[in-house]
C-alpha cells in the first residue's frame, strides 16, 4: 500500500493526525529526556578515571609475601614480583584490588617496574631468574631484563610504571591497564 504526499498531508491536518503527531513527539521527547541519563550511565567508565597515585609496593609471593619492599631487601640487578594497590578499586574488590609488577633494581636509587601484561595479548609474564628473561605462558613471547623483545610474537617492549624511592621504600605510580596499539 503506497500513499501520496498530498493524501498524507491531508490526513495529518485532521484532529487524529494532530493527536498522532502529538503522541509520537511527546513520547519521543519523554523517552529522550529519561533515556539520556539512563543510557549515559553505561558510559560512566569513560569519564570516571581515578587519579593516578603513588603506592608503596610489597612482595607479591614467596616467603616475604605482603612485606613492604625496602632498599635493603633488593640488590642492584635483582628482579622481584611486587604488588601494589591499583588506582581506585571498589571497596569489595578483594584480591583483585591489587596489581602486580616486575620490579628491577637498576641502580642505587633507581628501579624499573614492568607491567606483568605481555604486549602481545596481555597474559601475565614470568621472570626466569637464571637466563634473566621474561617468558609469556600464552604464546611464548620473550623479553630481556631491560624489557625489550627477545623473541616470540610480542610486537613491542614491556610497559613500565613510574617508580620512586621514599624513605627507603619503593613506590609505583598506578596506571590503568596499558593499551598496546
Amino acid at each position: 500500500m503506497s500513499i501520496s504526499i498530498p493524501t498524507l498531508t491531508r490526513k495529518l491536518m485532521t484532529r487524529e493526525g494532530f493527536l498522532g503527531i502529538f503522541t509520537l513527539s511527546f513520547g519521543a521527547l519523554g523517552g529522550l529526556a529519561v533515556g539520556i541519563p539512563i543510557i549515559g550511565y553505561i558510559f560512566v567508565p569513560l569519564f570516571k578515571q581515578p587519579a593516578e597515585r603513588w603506592q608503596t609496593v610489597t612482595f607479591s609471593n614467596g616467603p616475604k609475601s605482603g612485606k613492604t619492599i625496602t632498599l635493603s631487601q633488593i640488590a642492584v640487578g635483582d628482579t622481584v614480583e611486587a604488588s601494589f594497590e591499583a588506582n581506585g578499586p571498589v571497596p569489595w574488590a578483594g584480591r583483585t584490588a591489587v596489581q602486580a609488577a616486575w620490579l628491577r633494581r637498576t641502580g642505587q636509587n633507581s628501579f624499573i617496574a614492568y607491567a606483568v601484561y605481555c604486549t602481545h595479548l596481555g597474559c601475565p609474564i614470568h621472570w626466569l631468574n637464571e637466563p634473566k628473561i621474561f617468558l609469556c605462558p600464552c604464546h611464548g613471547s620473550v623479553f630481556n631484563a631491560d624489557g625489550t623483545v627477545a623473541g616470540g610474537p610480542a610486537p613491542r617492549p614491556l610497559f613500565h610504571y613510574e617508580t620512586r624511592v621514599v624513605n627507603g621504600r619503593v613506590q609505583i605510580k598506578t596506571h590503568p591497564l596499558p593499551i598496546y596499539s
Binding site: 567508565p45 569513560l46 591499583a86 578499586p89 569489595w92 583483585t96 596499539s181
Partner: peptide, 23 residues
Amino acid sequence: ARTPFIGGWVMQLLTAGPVVGGG
C-alpha cells in the same frame, strides 16, 4: 583495545575501571 580509533574506549567500557577488577 586494538579496535581502530575507539579501542581504548571499548576497553574501558569492558573493564569498567582502570584495571580488571570489581567493576
